[in-house]
Design a protein around this nucleic acid. Structure first.
Length: 695
DNA sequence: GGGTGACTGGAGC
DNA sequence: TTCCAGCTCCAGTCACCC
């Protein structure tokens, strides 16, 4: 007790530091009435403090406070004239918004009660009446009402939940089960509104205007009937809210949870009365941060106060944000059934134990690329913008994106471009990697648009990985044309983005090349494939590999094995190419500049037997015009670099993004400019300039 | 200097 | 010891182009 007292009276002099630790867990949620909020807050604080997560939350908290201070300062700077001006703006905008009010529709929001937990209880009736949470020690998805009484709730780590409720039963997540029950509920919804909008497995909006009119019964009766039918079909209870629009319907469904309903009449007075004292946090779209800003900057706690502070809202927020806040003050929300919206993006991400192990990170990236590709192919999507999402060991979230010239969907393309993005962030300790594809093409391609499409694993495993890699990324060349080349002191061999696929040749050229996990990504992709292909694992290794396949955690032992696999792999790579190292250098040196110019005639001279590169022996079919051209350019670039540096076999250097090291630059966009100090290496831009001069 | 597109991070569900 | 996944929307910033 004394210890707790001492700890509580921490350095900042605050006797109850947990009170200032704002978690989402203490926010009122259905079934949490009567919870000892302070106790929950204290336990969460005590369990969290000192952790990386906690530190990150504090950083975010500090950032929010800074934002609030900044907005307060802006508020204070408003002159009476400014305020008068923005009051006029608000006075104009409010009637315009009011004019859009539509009281002709009746919306019903249905929300299943503690859905996952209820489904699990159906499966295992022995759980009935006991506190239970769906999820694990790291995170729980939902908790039943018995558990909520202890302060346990969704999005709470399991270990904290157990501290709050030692009797808590944990049940693992089983999405198949929830999807099955969700489908049953949707069949019921369909009877009331064939165009109902499902927002998640357990929530949906129904426009019941027509069904009420046709059957001549009230919305309340429809809600009652629907809930009864859901129960009959599934054995699960749900809550419903009925209102003139979706925003209000959602608020209403929460009022008599669980297993209840609330109807707000289609009447302006009723709406305004309802909204007048409604806390802003109840509104969908207003979360923890927005609530704090509105409360601490403007003193807004209820929806009604949005209108009272209309001038400040119009002064400090963008038009769309101000419109949203004013609409909330008026109790306005969506009433029309929206058009079916096309998907904007698709993503896949995985969390794992924080690690710096590059091999593991690239392997994880490859897996995610493959999963994303499979998801995209299922929907026949091809995208142009690829975003890499990273969460560092300190919970900092970074995103890095590239917009390509071509739409892509194959796992190998995704991985190829994602690797470039990841490479630029290394070394870094990560706990999450995600990939998102967006900017989809309008015309969907068939799911089997490209029957020859390989999975990434196949690609890596296949013996022609090097060939597939060669010059296959011509789209990237211009996409990242502003990347620059730098001398990479850490890597013995590396290559720029534009020509990075050619590193395979470089590897094969240079017998001194020793596989090293510090090498750049494309070597890794290639070598891993080779390693898997040529290395006959022992039974122990096989088991170990299987254990690793779930991507959670990694083994130092494997890391060691992998290095030796990579070593073996690399020597096998060398055998793919004909002729000695010396022969190839001779060939390269005897190559006349014109012989690698871009004309078709010269291209033909360059390729032996229509297939083989006369310099390095790589095979590429004549139909690969662009790829072959790029390959020829590579050899030319190589020569030019040799001339430039005066030494043989100078390496092209990899692009380096300006990796943010300085936390002060957080949030600032990194600009990728050509490096003025390019040293002895020729940048790819310079290469093209020089090429043009030569030709 | 304005328009536009790209990139990044945040918020919310 | 342990703090989600996958999506949308939005704002701010920057670079490039005309």
């Amino acid at each position: 007790m004394e210890k707790e007292k001492n700890e509580s009276s921490s350095s900042n002099g605050n006797p109850k530091p947990w009170q200032s630790y704002h978690t989402v867990y203490t926010n009122a949620k259905a079934g949490m009435d009567g919870v000892d909020k302070e106790k929950v807050q204290r336990v969460v604080y005590e369990m969290s403090k000192g952790s990386k997560y906690f530190e990150n939350e504090e950083r975010k908290e500090a950032f929010m406070r800074q934002k609030i201070e900044h907005m307060r300062a802006r508020c204070a700077k408003l002159t009476p004239h400014d305020i008068s001006h923005y009051q006029k703006v608000a006075d104009t905008r409010v009637p315009e918004l009011e004019a859009t009010r539509d009281l002709s529709r009746t919306w019903l929001h249905v929300d299943m009660d503690a859905f996952y937990a209820a489904v699990e209880t159906l499966s295992d009736p022995s759980l009935k009446g006991k506190p239970m949470a769906v999820g694990g020690m790291s995170m729980i998805s939902t908790a039943n009402y018995e558990a909520r009484r202890f302060g346990v709730r969704s999005a709470m780590p399991g270990f904290i939940a157990r501290k709050l409720c030692p009797e808590l039963n944990f049940v693992p997540i089983d999405f198949k089960k929830y999807t099955y029950y969700s489908d049953l509920t949707r069949k019921v919804f369909h009877n009331y509104d064939p165009n109902f909008m499902a927002t998640s497995l357990d929530e949906a909006y129904l426009d019941i205007t027509e069904v009420c009119r046709k059957r001549g019964i009230s919305s309340s009766e429809i809600a009652e009937e629907l809930r009864t039918r859901v129960y009959e079909e599934t054995g699960l209870t749900c809550s419903a809210g009925v209102a003139p629009n979706r925003l209000l319907a959602k608020v209403c469904s929460d009022i008599n949870k669980p297993n209840g309903q609330f109807v707000l009449p289609n009447d302006r007075m009723a709406v305004m009365t309802f909204i007048s004292s409604l806390p802003i946090r109840k509104i969908g779209g207003i979360g923890k941060v927005t609530e704090h800003i509105l409360r601490d900057v403007f003193g807004i706690n209820t929806c009604e106060e949005m209108l009272e502070k209309g001038s400040f809202i119009c002064a400090l927020f963008s038009n769309s944000t101000a419109d949203f806040f004013l609409s909330v003050g008026l109790g306005l929300g969506g009433t029309a059934t929206p058009q079916i919206r096309s998907r904007k993006s698709m993503s896949n991400e995985r969390t794992f134990s924080a690690t710096e192990d590059k091999a593991f990170l690239y392997r994880t990236l490859a897996k995610i690329a493959e999963m994303l590709s499979a998801d995209m192919e299922k929907e026949g999507l091809r995208g142009r913008t690829l975003t890499l999402k990273l969460k560092t060991a300190s919970f900092e979230v970074r995103t890095r994106a590239v917009t390509l010239q071509k739409h892509i969907c194959s796992s190998e393309d995704i991985f190829k471009h994602a690797s470039v993005l990841l490479k630029a962030e290394l070394p870094v300790s990560l706990r999450l990697i995600g990939l998102r594809m967006s900017l989809f093409n309008e015309e969907k391609v068939g799911a089997s648009a490209d029957p020859t499409q390989k999975t990434l694993t196949n690609f890596i495993m296949s013996g022609d990985a090097s060939r597939k890699n060669v010059g296959h990324d011509n789209c990237l060349g211009s996409d990242v044309s502003d990347h620059h080349f730098m001398d990479d002191k850490e890597t013995s061999i590396s290559l720029g983005i534009h020509k990075r696929s050619h590193c395979v040749f470089r590897d094969s050229f240079d017998n001194k090349c020793v596989p090293d996990l510090d090498d750049n990504y494309h070597r890794f992709t290639y070598n891993v494939g080779e390693a898997e292909k040529i290395h006959e694992p022992s039974s122990d290794e096989t088991a170990e590999k299987e254990n690793k396949s779930d991507m959670i955690g990694h083994s130092p032992k494997y890391h060691h094995n992998e290095e030796s696999q990579l070593l073996e792999a690399n020597s096998s790579v060398l055998q793919h190419y004909e002729g000695s190292h010396h022969d190839r250098i001779e060939a390269a040196n005897s190559l006349d500049k014109e012989a690698v110019s871009s004309s078709n005639q010269e291209d033909q001279n360059f390729w032996v037997d229509d297939y083989k590169c006369s310099l390095c022996g790589i095979e590429m079919p004549p139909t690969f015009v662009e790829e072959r051209q790029e390959h020829s350019d590579f050899h030319l670039a190589q020569r030019l670099q040799e001339e430039e540096s005066g030494s043989d076999l100078r390496m092209l250097m990899p692009p380096q993004r300006c990796v943010r090291k300085d936390p002060a630059s957080h949030g600032k966009r990194k600009k990728l400019k050509s490096d003025k100090k390019e040293g002895r290496h020729l940048s790819i831009d310079m290469f093209f300039v020089k090429s043009n001069q030569n030709f």
